[in-house]
Design a protein around this nucleic acid. Structure first.
Lengths: 146, 146
DNA sequence: TTTAAACATGTATTTTGAATACATTTTTTA
DNA sequence: TAAAAAATGTATTCAAAATACATGTTTAAA
């Protein structure tokens, strides 16, 4: 059981962008340097976040991207939910492909679903703002001048 | 985010075995017929569950397997925890391979860990016994004579 | 007006782990 | 002694994620 690296990278991009002040832009190169992630790879992540309305991108020279809305409006639970496409923890979660004969009477799915619900309930208690409370420390770790 | 089919199959094998009464044995063939899973594949699952002390296997003609302990002693949370080897939801969960520079000051891991904890907390409220409360219905769905 | 810096986009390749299949051995009872 | 069952090890297939590559588009600065 794990999350995709894409999800991990997406969160890190948002944390990075969230530490910039005001209208200040971040670039893929900056982020790829800080986290040592291939810029090729990050490009897709950033592009995807833009399409999802979380980042605003500015093309052309001196371009880059910034948060499309306040950090306090970016809910971590909803974010992870949308970034991870597939939550079919058991075969029977997907009625289309399920072949398990006992699923009509099997309570396992309810138990796992309840657990999954609690998982997201916790995540939904946090926003990006909560993750960047310690701005100074994070900027320092990233080597950003503040 | 999903569980391995192995985990799913393991749970189904235990549910099947749990519906047998007393010392009665199940065979891989029976289970593979009921769930339409390749016996080759199930063999590993059963073998693995035996090694983990959840099933007792009897070799030779008329052999098979049965639960190694009462269904009420098989905790679903602990079971899934042990069947799924990898819970490194984020790169920084594994200190050995983590490369994220901000992890010392990053609170994301605490948030995700808290969510994972709640996930298991729910699962740990159930045992195999809870999953086979409706014996009759399940036996019927499986085509087992009761 | 040209060039460089940035994102946009589509495609291809690599890698990894899970899922599955195959083959052989061991055990035990009828 | 033969048949039915699990034990065990290895090999193959498959799918999804991760990654890389190539090219296009936009825009500001030189």
């Amino acid at each position: 059981m794990n999350l995709k690296k894409y999800t991990d990278f997406s969160l890190r991009v948002l944390i990075f962008a969230g530490l910039k002040s005001g209208e200040e832009l971040s670039t893929i190169k900056e982020v790829s340097d800080v986290y040592s992630i291939s810029p090729e790879h990050l490009r897709k992540v950033v592009h995807d976040l833009t399409k999802r309305g979380l980042l605003t991108s500015v093309r052309g020279r001196n371009g880059g991207f910034r948060l499309a809305k306040p950090a306090s409006d970016i809910n971590i639970g909803l974010l992870i939910r949308s970034l991870e496409s597939d939550f079919n923890l058991l075969e029977c979660f997907d009625k289309g492909t399920n072949h398990c004969v006992i699923s009509p009477g099997c309570s396992l799915k309810h138990v796992v679903n309840k657990a999954l619900f609690q998982f997201f309930k916790v995540l939904e208690e946090y926003t990006l703002e909560d993750l960047i409370q310690n701005e100074e420390e994070l900027r320092e770790l990233m080597g950003m001048e503040s």
